[in-house]
């Protein structure tokens, strides 16, 4: 068997599968294809892939249902492919265990970056106490943050928020998830807290807080911590 990572594509559009197939093969991935949700679930069970690209609009079973069934036993990354203007669908999928999403039409570069990031995050899961993103160093153990200018003062909540994003670096965390984890279940509709705190963290960490490079806004969905390089 080759050691190229296997990616399973579940999408009913032959053209989309073909395109993804060529793109992924040429970047040293092994590609498996399924045209329906049922077929996808069976193939994932027979040859568990390193990651799955799952289209939400499948002809036989709802993509959310496929995601739910896969997540009962499958723990590798699942990336959702969806159409534009479907924030609700995306949030629902992310809250149900999807690792990331891409809206069609997407750029190949974007797809490959997300896939790499998702595959990498799986390896990072063994709690490394030090997270480095570009110049930003986050020490989860000593609860300190520093950049090229030295130590940055953080309040407890600011740090908790940044640490949560750091532990899930590369992954989109939904507004509701962040609010529940940091402030508690009673606060899931208080998204203004989240925005104020994100703005404060950006003021402390970004060169130009108006053009953030670390904490990226996913409009209508949530935030993700990325490496600016």
């Amino acid at each position: 068997m080759s050691n190229r990572p296997a990616i399973l594509i579940i999408d009913d559009e032959p053209q989309m599968r073909k395109l993804l197939d060529i793109t992924l093969q040429s970047h040293d991935y092994q590609v498996l294809q399924a045209a329906t949700g049922k077929q996808g679930i069976t193939m994932a069970a027979l040859h568990p892939p390193e990651a799955i690209l799952l289209d939400l609009g499948l002809p036989d079973i709802n993509g959310h249902q496929v995601l739910k069934e896969l997540r009962e036993w499958y723990s590798n990354p699942i990336l959702i492919l969806s159409v534009q203007n479907s924030e609700d669908d995306i949030i629902h999928a992310l809250d149900n265990g999807a690792n990331d999403y891409l809206t069609k039409p997407f750029r190949t570069g974007e797809l490959l970056a997300r896939l790499r990031s998702a595959l990498r995050s799986r390896l990072l899961d063994q709690q490394t106490p030090l997270v480095q993103m570009g110049q930003l160093k986050i020490d989860l153990e000593s609860r300190t943050v520093s950049n090229e200018l030295g130590l940055i003062k953080f309040t407890a909540t600011e740090f908790n928020l940044l640490a949560l994003l750091a532990r899930n670096r590369g992954k989109v965390l939904t507004h509701q998830y962040l609010l529940r984890e940091i402030w508690g279940p009673g606060y899931i509709h208080q998204s203004q807290y989240l925005r104020v705190f994100i703005a404060q963290i950006r003021k402390k960490t970004e060169k130009d807080p108006n053009r953030p490079t670390y904490i990226i806004t996913e409009s209508g969905i949530g935030y993700r911590l990325t490496d600016p390089d």
């Binding site: 309040t155 407890a156 909540t157 203004q192 807290y193 104020v196 705190f197 404060q200």
Partner: peptide, 8 residues
């Protein structure tokens, strides 16, 4: 009216 939250 939530502008800058100093502490929690």
């Amino acid at each position: 009216y939530l502008q800058n939250v100093k502490h929690e």
